[in-house]
């Protein structure tokens, strides 16, 4: 699946997307896998309360299932308008 990062999450990780092969059942499990990759991922995902997640371009929460998901995105709270 494609994992996308926006705003400071992208800056902290250093690139805008990863192609990930994962068996993670939920977003939270995917986060655990990403954290284990490298320090910069651990830093980006240190505080989940500072992050929001979308699965297939719909806002959801960290317990959302990933079955069939094609795209997961992580970003800070939005500041539109």
């Amino acid at each position: 699946m494609d994992v996308l990062y926006f705003a400071w999450v992208r800056e902290r990780i250093g690139h805008p997307r990863d192609r990930v092969d994962t068996q993670a059942a939920t977003v939270r499990e995917l986060v655990a896998e990403l954290r284990a990759r490298e320090d910069r991922y651990a830093a980006a995902f240190a505080d989940l309360s500072a992050l929001r997640v979308a699965v297939d371009q719909e806002l959801t929460d960290f317990d959302a299932p990933l079955a069939g998901a094609r795209e997961v995105a992580f970003f800070p709270p939005m500041t539109g308008g």
Binding site: A7, L59, F75, P76, P77, M78, T79, G80, G81
Partner: peptide, 14 residues
């Protein structure tokens, strides 16, 4: 529209 757009549309300002 404005209230929702502020915190539910994926925009970020720097």
């Amino acid at each position: 529209l404005m209230d929702y757009l502020k915190s539910r549309a994926p925009f970020w300002k720097k």
